[in-house]
C-alpha cells in the first residue's frame, strides 16, 4: 500500500502521519499543496492535521480552493480512498466530500487530551479491523471539532452506517466533548471511500505515548 500525505503550508501533522504509516510498513509520499495532480500509484490520500493556510477564517475554508484539492476531489469521485484527520476532516467537509460542518468547540477553547471513542460502524475500508462498540483511546487536539449536521442529514448518516466513531467514557457511553451533535467524532461518505475524524490515530501507535489503538485503525486500509 502507498499513501499520499498532503502538505499545506500550515500542516503540522504531515511528518507524524508519514512516520505512522511507515512504521506500519507502508510507503508514503508528501504531496505539496501547489501540485495539481496526485502520484499515480497511490492507494490512499491522507489529509493530515494542522492549520492549512492559517485557518484564521473558518478552518479549511481556504484549503478547499487549493490546486491539490481539485485532484483529491477527482480521485475520490472515482472511488479513491481519502482519509482526513482533524484539519483534514474540516477540509473534507468544506470541499463537500463529507456532509456537515465543524464549528468552534462549545467551550470555545482548544481541547487537547487523550480521549476515548466508540466504534459505531466497522463495515468499511477504514475500521474493519476494529470491533463494533469497541472503545479506543485516541488523542484529540482541536479548536473546531464541534460537528454539526441538520436533522435530515443526521438520520441519513445513521441509516447509511456513515457514523464511524463517537466520543465516549470508559464504559463506552457517549459523552459530550466539544458540542458535537450525537457526540460524533468521525464519519464517512455514503459511498464509504471518504473518511474524516477529529481524533488523531497517528498519535496512538506506541504504548509509551499512552495508546497503540491507532494501529488497527490505520491498518484497516490495508485489506
Amino acid at each position: 500500500m502507498k499513501v499520499a500525505v498532503l502538505r499545506f503550508p500550515g500542516t503540522n501533522c504531515e511528518f507524524d502521519t508519514q512516520y505512522a504509516f511507515e512504521k506500519l510498513g507502508y510507503a508514503t509520499e508528501l504531496v505539496w499543496h501547489k501540485e495539481t495532480t496526485l502520484p499515480s500509484d497511490i492507494n490512499l490520500v491522507v489529509i493530515p492535521g494542522g492549520f492549512s493556510y492559517g485557518d484564521y477564517l473558518r478552518s479549511g475554508s481556504i484549503a478547499r480552493f487549493s490546486p491539490i484539492m481539485r485532484a483529491v476531489v477527482n480521485f475520490a469521485n472515482k472511488g479513491g480512498k481519502v482519509l482526513g484527520i482533524c484539519n483534514g476532516f474540516q477540509i473534507l467537509t468544506e470541499v463537500g466530500l463529507l456532509p456537515g460542518a465543524l464549528k468552534r468547540n462549545s467551550n470555545l477553547h482548544f481541547i487537547s487530551k487523550m480521549q476515548r471513542i466508540r466504534v459505531e460502524n466497522n463495515d468499511n475500508a477504514f475500521l474493519n479491523r476494529c470491533e463494533k462498540d469497541e472503545v479506543l483511546q485516541i488523542p484529540i487536539a482541536h479548536a473546531d471539532g464541534n460537528y454539526y449536521i441538520d436533522p435530515t442529514g443526521l438520520s441519513d448518516l445513521e441509516e447509511n452506517g456513515q457514523i464511524l466513531v463517537r466520543y465516549c467514557d470508559a464504559n463506552g457511553k457517549s459523552m459530550d466533548v466539544n458540542g458535537s451533535i450525537g457526540s460524533i467524532a468521525g464519519i464517512c461518505n455514503k459511498e464509504k471511500n471518504v473518511f474524516g475524524l477529529m481524533p488523531h490515530p497517528e498519535r496512538a501507535l506506541d504504548k509509551i505515548l499512552g495508546s497503540d489503538d491507532g494501529i488497527k485503525m490505520l491498518k484497516g486500509f490495508d485489506s
Partner: peptide, 27 residues
C-alpha cells in the same frame, strides 16, 4: 494545558499533568 497541543510530533511520554518533569522521546 488542555488548551495546548501537548502531543503533536508524537514524542510526548510524560505529558503535562503527570507531575514533576515532562519528557519526550528522541526518535
Amino acid at each position: 494545558y488542555n488548551q495546548y497541543d501537548s502531543m503533536v510530533q508524537i514524542n510526548t511520554v510524560k505529558a503535562p499533568g503527570s507531575l514533576d518533569a515532562s519528557s519526550i522521546r528522541v526518535k
